[in-house]
């Protein structure tokens, strides 16, 4: 099986989907000549031409709006927002138009578009360029939000997103682009809305998505190696729809859970997950569900402060230990 980067997986999938379906086209700032700020679209302008790889003016609301219109007309636009932070400028198009057109026009036309965009801090890009605001979109009925953490999932979920007949926010992460993983020769589209038990275990459930799913794996491996703790990792993969069933099933088995999220704690994705666990596995819980999240501050630009503000393997490990202590069966 080939080992490729997350970046490569995205690139290859875009290319394959464009080859397979002439209706698929790319639109965004600097994706053509410059090949994208993070080089996901490298070579695609040369291969597919300007008609299908559209460099746009510096106008996010404009090109997301254009993608909405193109999707309504039956094309399958894949828009690249340079970072999720810039989606705020296009918020009205995403929330009031992409998400609602199908319903408000009586189901007469759907909006099969994908918005690819990286979130994440840790790159010293300052408070306005380092946010994890996928929650804003996960909150909105009519949108789907997926967040792969591995190259294989990136491929499977991007295929699914492009094939989907509804608008999908496809969350990438700056810290994941260079990570590597095995990707099979052929990857079937994933089922959007299904979480993965990406590492089975018995003692505790760690729930994460995107970058924090990979951190959860590192922590789980270390806990197993050094302390014999068997942690199960659930990688959400999809934030809307949320796969409550898989979460609940895992917690019913392990009886405790820690949620790792890159966004802010209060009203964050973790709050919804904790509520779901409480709903579905209350009787199985031996300890309160804990959340590990970023400090609730605009992310500092100074490197040491930025590092301190973001959730880390250390803070997640601490939360696991404290939870197991509360359970009273730490080994």
């Amino acid at each position: 099986m080939a080992v490729i980067t997350y970046r490569q997986a995205l690139h290859d999938t875009l290319r394959e989907e464009m080859l397979a379906d002439e209706d698929v086209f790319l639109i965004g700032e600097e994706i053509g000549v410059f090949e994208g700020s993070y080089k996901i679209t490298a070579g695609l302008l040369d291969e597919f031409g300007e008609k299908r790889v559209r460099d746009t003016p510096i106008a996010e609301e404009g090109f997301i709006g254009a993608a909405v219109g193109a999707a309504m007309q039956g094309l399958r636009p894949v828009a690249e927002l340079m970072t999720i932070n810039f989606s705020l400028i296009a918020l009205d198009q995403i929330v009031n138009h992409a998400a609602k057109i199908y319903g408000m026009f009586g189901g007469q036309c759907s909006v099969p578009m994908v918005m690819r965009t990286p979130g994440g801090g840790g790159q010293q890009l300052g408070a306005t360029h380092s946010q994890n605001i996928e929650l804003y979109y996960a909150f909105v009925p009519g949108l789907k939000v997926v967040a792969p953490s591995t190259p294989a999932d990136a491929k499977a979920l991007l295929r699914a997103s492009i094939a989907d007949n509804d608008p999908v926010l496809f969350l990438e992460n700056l810290a994941l682009y260079n990570t590597k993983g095995e990707v099979p020769e052929t990857v079937e589209p994933a089922e959007i809305g299904k979480a993965a038990v990406s590492r089975p275990g018995n003692d505790i459930t760690i729930i994460g998505y995107s970058r924090m799913a990979t951190v959860a794996h590192q922590v789980a491996d270390k806990l197993e190696d050094e302390e014999g703790i068997s942690a199960e990792v659930v990688d959400l993969r999809s934030l809307r729809p949320l796969d409550r069933e898989t979460l609940v099933e895992s917690v019913r088995k392990t009886n405790c859970a820690v949620i790792a999220e890159d966004d802010w704690l209060t009203y964050g994705i973790g709050a919804e997950i904790a509520a779901s666990i409480s709903d579905g596995a209350f009787d199985s819980l031996d300890a309160p569900v804990r959340r590990v999240a970023a400090a609730e501050v605009p992310l500092p630009y100074a490197k040491p402060l930025e590092r301190a503000a973001l959730p880390s393997a250390e803070s997640l490990t601490t939360a696991v230990h404290e939870t197991l202590e509360a359970v009273g069966r730490r080994r």
């Binding site: 209060t266 400090a295 609730e296 501050v297 100074a302 040491p304 402060l305 301190a308 503000a309």
Partner: peptide, 26 residues
């Protein structure tokens, strides 16, 4: 170099209990 607690110092103009608790924990 700014001290670590600096990140909590300019979130709100008024003292915020959420931020104060985070600062103390940190």
């Amino acid at each position: 170099e700014p001290p670590p607690e600096r990140m909590f110092s300019e979130v709100y103009a008024e003292e915020s209990p959420v931020v104060a608790a985070q600062r103390q924990d940190y």
